[in-house]
Design a protein around this nucleic acid. Structure first.
Lengths: 191, 191
DNA sequence: CGTAACATGTAATCCGTTACATGATTCG
DNA sequence: CGAATCATGTAACGGATTACATGTTACG
């Protein structure tokens, strides 16, 4: 059982879904960080089935491919709850390619660094708008219990806050750069 | 050429290093997100050598394994600068296992959710302290130019701010939970 | 006397992604 | 009539991690 198995088990704990449904949810939930590819999802569903944590019911559809609707079992439910409570929370991992890009720009002129920073600020502002919209969409999402609603909203909010923090950092970086520029003017022969 | 190649090239743009040095820097810089394993580093160094972006000088040491000290070339330097300025900044990726864990805890009693949250808060507080210490260590780091210093400090600061944002989110989650609890008391038969 | 740090490399494995394969329907 | 959506699966590839292999010195 790997992480993705528990993620899927979790989705099924709310309502029965097909593999295709799971795929779609994963694709547009940034916190389910897998790309939502078939290979992992269908394999995970098979693993869950083997372990008896889910069952599937085949819905024959004329004039459309058959559906396999997966539901969580009692055993699956208790396994999920066990995992949720026993797994020690992990510190989040960040993959910030931009930091790598920026870090070696130290030898560039300050203007170039500022340009890079401005470009990053632009895409992060877009990102923030997107996340906010996602959160808003969640508000109007039908067929969700109060709990479910609350969870999704908080999760979207997490990403919103991450974007805001990043933008805040960009600003402080910019101020630091300004400071450095002024210092260099005073003593331009610094080694 | 992949991302890790540019990361190493960047490190070498500051000072010549051995593969082993690179490994250590990667291991304790959270923003160089690779685990710092030999396989990738030595292969990347070979690729860089093949492309003429670095040269190596072998230092024979009696009574110790030989060192290969890698230095960036002119061509490597211009390739690095080209990459830094041409690469479109990417939005950061987050891998927050805890969000997955928490999201399916909706069916649990509120107390359990609060317990999970408290555990997460604890490790994030520790994390924040670590990041702050790292930033502090950087302040007293010897043999670094003003620019280099500034960059590292800002990068460490980025991680500090991420931790702070996360802790802030935890707090708002907790308040949301309180709110939900009070609502459920008033209308406990909610479906 | 075992373990950690120094130092360079390779092999095996795992996880995740893209792309492929199939096939019906619907929309522009 | 091609592209997109629905629907399930497999194959191939590439990136990253762990573990293996080798050998010295220094420290507790």
């Amino acid at each position: 059982m790997m992480m993705i198995d528990y993620a899927i088990l979790g989705l099924l704990s709310w309502k029965p879904l097909t593999g295709y449904d799971v795929k779609r949810v994963m694709q547009d939930s940034p916190f389910l960080y897998w790309s939502g590819n078939n290979n992992q999802i269908y394999k995970a569903l098979m693993r869950l089935l083997e372990n008896g944590f889910v069952t599937n019911e085949i819905q024959y559809q004329e004039s459309a491919p058959n559906k396999k609707i997966y539901s969580i079992t009692e055993s699956g439910m208790s396994e999920l709850l066990r995992w949720v409570m026993s797994e020690e929370p992990e510190v989040p991992e960040f993959k910030k390619t931009f930091l790598i890009q920026l870090s070696w720009a130290g030898c560039l002129e300050t203007e170039k660094v500022e340009e890079l920073l401005a470009r990053y600020e632009k895409i992060m502002t877009q990102q923030l708008a997107m996340r906010r919209e996602e959160k808003c969409r969640e508000k109007n999402f039908p067929n969700r219990s109060k709990q479910e609603h609350f969870m999704w909203e908080m999760i979207y909010d997490n990403f919103v806050m991450m974007c805001e923090a990043e933008l805040c950092w960009i600003q402080s970086f910019r101020e630091g750069l300004e400071h450095l520029k002024r210092e260099n003017k005073h003593e331009p022969q610094e080694d």
